[in-house]
Design a protein around this nucleic acid. Structure first.
Lengths: 214, 214
DNA sequence: AATAAATGACTGACTGGTCAGTTATAATAT
DNA sequence: ATATTATAACTGACCAGTCAGTCATTTATT
C-alpha cells in the first residue's frame, strides 16, 4: 500500500513487474464488474472474481482489502473516466440549447446505456441503500453534474426563447428519466419486450423537446 | 394490508385457527417485504423475517417452501391488489385524454411511489435478472397493462385532437419514466437531495402533457 | 557473465462463522 | 384424544478472509 512517493522519476517505462501488477488490477476490476453485475453484491463470490481474472482467491486480497472495497473501487474506477469526457459535450458554445440538450442526451445513451456502465447504473440502484457512501459518490459526481448541465442548458434555452419558463422541481430528473428507464428496461425486461435504443432515443428527445418548447 | 384473492367466499366465518393462520401468513409477507427491501434478496435472513413476524424460523417453512418462494409470493401478493384497483382510473369515460393521463399518473404516484410498493419496484430492478419468472410476471401484469392503458389514452387524445400523432416506440415508457425515476430517487438519493413527490409530479405532468400537445 | 541472495507476487488449503433448511419435541385448538 | 401449528436445536453446505509456503523476477556479489 505504500508507494506514492515517486521513486520512479528516473525512467518512464514500468518494470515488467509493475506492468503485470497494473494489468492484474485492471483484470480484477473487469472481473468484479462482470460478477457483481451478474448476481449482485451479496451473492457474488470472491472466488468467481478471482477465477474470472485468471488468478487465485488469495491474490484478490493483495489488491483489495475486502469484498466491499473491491466493489466500491470497481464502481469508482468504471465511472470516473466518464467525468473527463463530459467536457466534450460542452465544447461547442455556438450550439442552440435544443441541439445541446440533444447532444447531451445522446452522450448519455452512448456512454452509459450502450456500455457496461449501464450495469453499474443498475447496481447503484440495487445496492445504493446498502452503500450510502457509494450512492453519495455517484450522486455528487455523476448525477449532480448531469443536473447542473441540464440546468444550464435550460437556462440558455429560456434566455434564447427556445424553451418556455418552467418551475423546475425535478425538471432535470424528468428530462433524463427516459434514458434511465431505457437502461433498466434493457437489462431487466428486454427479453420479454425488446427495445431499440436508437428509436427509443428519438421518441425521448421528441417528447422532451416538445415539452420544453416555448 | 388488505389483499389476497379470496378463495374463501364461503358464508361461514373462518375458524379461529384459520384466522390465525391467515394472519400469520400476512404478517410473514409483510415481514418479508420489510426485510427484502432493507437488504435485498441474497443478504436477507429467514431468521430476521421470522423474528419480524413474531415467529420462529421453523414456522416460516410451514407457510413457504423456500426463501425463493417467499420472495416471489411476497412480490405477487403485494402487487396483485393494485390490478383490481386499476379499473377505478378507467371508470370515467367522459374524461378528456389529458385529464385521463393525469389521473393515470396520479394513480401511479399514489399507489406505488407513496407506498411500500416502491420498494418492490426497486427490488424488481435489482433482482429481476436473477428471477426471470418474476420479471416476467411483473412485466406481463403491471408493465404491460400500464403500457396498454397509456396507449389507449394516447389514441383517444390523438382522435380528439388533444395530442399530436407520435411514432411511438417506447412512448409509454417515456411517459411513465419520470415516475419511475422519482421512486428510485426517493429510495436511493433522497438523503443527499430530497425530492418532494407532489411538486415533482406537477413538473412531470406539465412536461409530458406539453410534449404530447398537438 | 554467472551465481547467489533478496524481494515480492501468487497460491490454495484452512478456519471461523453464517445461514437455509430439517426434525424432534412441545403447545394449542377442535 | 388427536390433528394442527409452533418451536429451537441441529446439520451441512458455503464462503470471506488468512497464512505458510512456492515461484518468478530483480538486485547484489564474485
Amino acid at each position: 500500500m505504500s508507494e506514492l512517493i515517486d521513486a520512479n522519476t528516473s525512467k518512464e517505462a514500468l518494470s515488467k513487474r509493475e506492468q503485470q501488477k497494473e494489468n492484474k488490477r485492471l483484470a480484477l476490476l473487469d472481473a468484479a464488474l462482470a460478477v457483481f453485475s451478474r448476481v449482485g453484491f451479496a451473492a457474488a463470490k470472491m472466488d468467481d472474481v478471482a477465477h474470472e481474472a485468471g488468478v487465485s482467491k488469495g491474490t484478490v486480497y493483495l489488491y483489495f482489502d475486502s469484498k466491499e472495497t473491491l466493489f466500491k473501487e470497481m464502481v469508482r474506477a468504471k465511472m470516473t473516466p466518464m467525468l473527463t469526457d463530459v467536457a466534450e459535450v460542452l465544447g461547442h458554445p455556438d450550439m442552440s440549447a435544443t441541439e445541446r440538450l440533444k447532444a447531451h442526451l445522446k452522450f448519455f445513451y452512448k456512454k452509459v446505456l450502450n456500455s457496461d456502465r449501464r450495469q453499474i447504473m443498475r447496481l447503484i440502484m440495487a445496492e445504493g441503500p446498502n452503500f450510502p457512501d457509494l450512492a453519495e459518490f455517484y450522486h455528487a459526481n455523476i448525477l449532480n453534474r448531469g443536473q447542473a448541465m441540464i440546468g444550464a442548458i435550460i437556462q440558455q434555452g429560456v434566455a434564447s426563447g427556445e424553451f418556455r419558463q418552467m418551475e423546475g422541481h425535478g425538471l432535470a430528473q424528468n428530462i433524463a428519466a427516459g434514458a434511465l428507464v431505457a437502461g433498466i428496461w434493457k437489462l431487466v425486461f428486454d427479453r420479454f419486450q425488446p427495445i431499440d435504443l436508437d428509436t427509443y432515443f428519438d421518441t425521448h428527445v421528441d417528447l422532451i423537446l416538445n415539452g420544453l418548447k416555448a
